[in-house]
Design a protein around this nucleic acid. Structure first.
Length: 487
RNA sequence: GGCCCCAUCGUCUAUCGGUUAGGACGACACCCUUUCAAGGUGUAGAGACGGGUUCGAUUCCCGUUGGGGCUACCA
């Protein structure tokens, strides 16, 4: 390992939201930087002016912030380094490592098409490298446009990848690639190398779709006389069809998952386990801190993985159940307000009550919106009875009416509101009526929340409070009387 | 087509030549139980194929097949 602290970077191009694959790459770089006491830098590769947008840049920052991936030092905007990119290209031209190519884009496209239709692969034939000096001078003087091409030397380019061990490419398979366009703007590989050198990057960790770029970049480092960084190529994340993750697979932006009700720590936890494993037996549900401590490039995997939203949701449920309740409150309260259940201030005013409600609902939820969705009966004035639940639990309206009336009267006659005593009371009542506890409690549940699934009935009563509980039973009685009359 | 990468249950993975190939998600069953969850227990479920190397291969090597990536004056 290097003596000085490692410097890693995440270098997205701002052509869209932060993709889960990009997020995973950012996370691994961040994790390793935090683990090793290195720096995690951010560089926005905005040299493709046609596709780059400020909205995308903002979306990427927001995505990283949401995940909690903070970066060190100033964000580098690649477009701001144009002068250096040109200077580095000029250096290569001056040292004879690159040459001017006067072939136009159209000519190249034609030759490529011809080669392909002939069944062969197109490689640039270096015709412009064979031009004599006088001819080059003449064309330059005449103002003929040209690109700068890198002259790929003979031999082989290989490196020791942190993920893949040794990877090598015969140089004959690498075309003399363009480094500077005819408008004197840099091509990706050149800009990346120029910037990575300038930023002092010591480890380039990125998706393995960049493997074939790596030999070109290594050649550039060498031609520029720079020290090589280490490379680590992470496996792709695929959709359920085994193809590269895309919009076809539903949500691919981390922001989509945020809005779906996924927790940032769960997302991070899940992403961390795609393409990395601590090895041996390990607990899969981990906090950010635990991830930092466990993370190591030794555990990097080679195989592409499939993004399994089912497991993500399970993991979210795990984090949901374990996170500090106060944290959950601040996360979920605004959503209650948005759903029109209660304002954030109202919830804060009866915080103990709200926390109790959250404790009851979070165990039953995988996404945070599911908490909100289940909460309606505890805020609404009255409940709406689910027809299916009514059909099943209030099958015999007359008998149910008798039962619920007895329940109401028992509750009214009793001043206390302790769940244990309530349970004792209800069980005794059921026994005196000659029915099982379930036969009493299920109809009661419909009366209280309108649906057949809810927290434990005595918790429900506690959350509702004495008055509302009794009022709801009375309302259910009225409804049952109508049903009896109607029948 | 060319080059490169990859290959253990449906999915995520453990295994550093010798294991009844383990765990997690999902599925199913059961337990718990006032419902739904959560939790607990259990069941089904994998080394792509063919050659080597070795006393012994999931593990090392080669090939085949399959999948993926790249193949721009995009990034």
């Amino acid at each position: 390992m290097t003596a000085s602290p490692p410097r890693l970077r995440f270098a997205p191009s701002p052509t869209g939201f932060l993709h889960v694959g990009g997020a995973r790459t950012a996370l691994f770089n961040w994790l390793l930087a935090r683990r090793t006491g290195g720096k995690f830098l951010l560089r926005v590769e905005d040299t493709d002016k046609a596709r780059s947008t400020d909205d995308s840049t903002r979306a990427i920052f927001e995505g990283l912030e949401w995940l909690g991936l903070d970066w060190d030092e100033e964000v580098v905007f690649q477009g701001a380094n144009l002068d250096r990119h040109r200077a580095d290209a000029a250096k290569l031209l001056a040292s004879g490592k690159a040459y001017r190519c006067f072939c136009t884009a159209d000519e190249i496209a034609q030759r490529r098409a011809a080669a392909e239709s002939a069944g062969g692969a197109f490689t640039y034939d270096r015709r412009c490298d064979k031009l004599d000096a006088a001819e080059i001078d003449r064309r330059v003087a005449a103002g003929s446009p040209f690109v700068l091409r890198f002259r790929v030397p003979d031999g082989e380019t290989a490196w020791h990848d942190l993920v893949h061990e040794r990877i090598s490419f015969p140089n004959k398979d690498i075309d003399d690639f363009v480094i500077l366009r005819s408008d004197a703007t840099p091509i990706y590989n050149h800009a990346v190398v120029s910037d990575d050198i300038a930023m002092g990057i010591t480890l380039v960790m990125r998706g393995d779709d960049h493997i074939s770029n790596t030999p070109k970049q290594i050649l550039l480092y060498e031609a520029l006389g720079a020290t090589l960084p280490q490379f680590a190529h992470l496996p792709m994340i695929h959709g359920t069809d085994g193809k590269k993750l895309s919009k076809r697979h539903g949500a691919t932006a981390v922001g989509d998952y945020q809005h779906l009700g996924i927790l940032a720590p769960a997302m991070v936890n899940f992403l961390a386990l795609m393409g990395w494993s601590p090895g041996g037996d390990f607990e899969e549900v981990m906090t950010l801190d635990q991830l930092i401590h466990a993370f190591s490039s030794d555990g990097l995997l080679r195989k592409a993985s499939v993004f399994d939203t089912k497991k993500l949701e399970w993991m979210n449920g795990q984090h949901l159940a374990k996170m500090p309740i106060a944290e959950l409150e601040s996360l979920v309260a605004p959503r209650f307000e948005k759903a029109g259940l209660a304002t954030v201030a109202e919830l804060a005013a009866r915080r103990d009550w709200f926390h109790h409600l959250l404790e009851q609902l979070r165990v039953r939820s995988r996404l945070i919106d599911e908490i909100v969705a289940q909460a309606a009966p505890y805020f609404a004035e009255s409940v709406t009875y689910d027809p299916e639940a009514v059909a099943k639990q209030w099958k015999d309206p007359a008998a149910t009416l008798t039962l619920l009336t007895a329940v109401r009267e028992a509750l009214e006659a009793h001043a206390g509101w302790d769940p244990l005593l309530l349970e004792e009371m209800m069980r005794a009542l059921a026994e005196s009526k000659g029915v099982g506890a379930g036969k009493l409690l299920q109809p009661l549940r419909i009366a209280l929340v309108g649906v057949s699934a809810s927290p434990g009935i005595f918790d429900v009563m506690l959350i509702l409070g004495r008055d509302r509980t009794i009022a709801r039973i009375a309302a259910a009685e009225r409804r049952l009387r109508e049903m009896v009359a109607g029948a």
